[in-house]
Design a binder for these strands. Structure first.
Lengths: 208, 208
DNA sequence: CGATCTATGTCAATATTATAACAAATCAGA
DNA sequence: TCTGATTTGTTATAATATTGACATAGATCG
């Protein structure tokens, strides 16, 4: 596993993203303080793990009361915000693509969805969940124009590899792939496979 | 991390699920043999890792030629098939739910999707992607009747917790949760959160 | 038939991650 | 203000996972 510049282990970093989400949730519920063991239960890990993670980022809570939700959220947020926000495009505005847009919304910290693409001209020109949909032949020019560096692939399996290559060719360095095929890309492109079928198979295993 | 009965580490087990998928893909492309470093590249890990995993399950390839795709797939499949297949229900037949049904298809090894549920009576009674959709008030009776033990949650965030509890109450032991809220459930229920927003935020981090 | 090349099988070393344990600190209540 | 209960901060320890290295074995070619 590679290390990032700030000396925070990648796994901790990933958990921090989870903590931020949970803290926002807690804040919205009006919670003022939270204990390490509570965060742990929500994040599916242990109290020691949470405390260790927070120690690593240099956050201090207070005994008895726990961690102030708002200050901790702010701290984590500040830390994660050091990374410049990603500019995202979605390719494939079919059922899944539209569902993703609607579901994710457009207000994610560190992430802005700027465009959608589809090969079906029926779907282009429209605005879906606040995101404009362009024809896929404009992919390269729009990606460059909008400074997009992260792609979401919600296209049929057969098209995934080609689209991925086109994205990578114009400077996209991260891809979230919902198509159930492995992508072959240069290793400087970070690919995260969200294979729902795989997830199901895996949980079916653990569940026993 | 817990160990399963067959002494194969959970992480290896999860990678085996990935390998199976990749091998099926390779087989469908007509590939007869595959090298550890090729599988590694597809699975996003190293050749040593692959060899070690296959060593653990006691599979033997041949030097020079590598691993026979078909025999290896069969071996992994046989091993994973020891677990009884899971019987799955999807709750929430909105955009995301329908997209999941259509996307996942119904032919997953070890997994059968038997029912969908929705609160909107407009959507019930129909068959979506081969799966019958029932009104959500029949949740408990149908889950028992169909022997369902795994649930997919694609409901709005506000309803997720309640539905999850109802599922757990009638014997569901695994939940794949697409709602962006943490579920509080008894620990004998395995929950896997598929928070697409989180995924995006995480990849936005790694991408730097 | 032997030399060579390539990829496996495996163990040891390393790195990483998680757990446990405990001292220090804070608050509440008497 | 002292006592006790409780939770943090941190270190030491243990468990786990990954990597590296190399002997071994099959295939190919002269």
């Amino acid at each position: 596993m590679k290390q990032n510049k700030s000396d925070i282990p990648l796994k901790t970093m990933e958990r921090l993203v989870t903590y931020r989400r949970l803290l926002q949730y807690l804040a919205s519920e009006g919670r003022a303080f939270v204990f390490s063991h509570e965060l742990a239960k929500l994040a599916n890990n242990t109290a020691a793990q949470v405390r260790r993670d927070l120690m690593i980022i240099g956050h201090h809570g207070s005994p008895i009361r726990g961690y102030g939700v708002r200050p901790l959220a702010a701290h984590v947020d500040r830390l994660l915000a050091q990374h410049e926000p990603s500019r995202v495009a979605l390719v494939g505005a079919g059922n899944l693509g539209r569902a993703i847009l609607a579901h994710v919304g457009f207000q994610l910290p560190g992430v802005t969805i700027l465009a959608a693409f589809d090969s079906d001209e029926e779907r282009t020109g429209r605005v879906i969940a606040g995101v404009r949909c362009y024809p896929v032949r404009e992919l390269e020019s729009r990606v460059v124009e909008l400074g997009i560096n992260l792609g979401i692939l919600a296209v049929p399996a057969a098209e995934a590899q080609e689209v991925a290559e086109r994205l990578a060719a114009v400077g996209v360095t991260g891809i979230l792939n919902f198509a159930p095929v492995p992508l072959r890309l240069p290793q400087d492109v970070v690919v995260d496979e969200v294979d729902i079928g795989l997830k199901l198979e895996r949980i079916a295993l653990c569940r026993q």
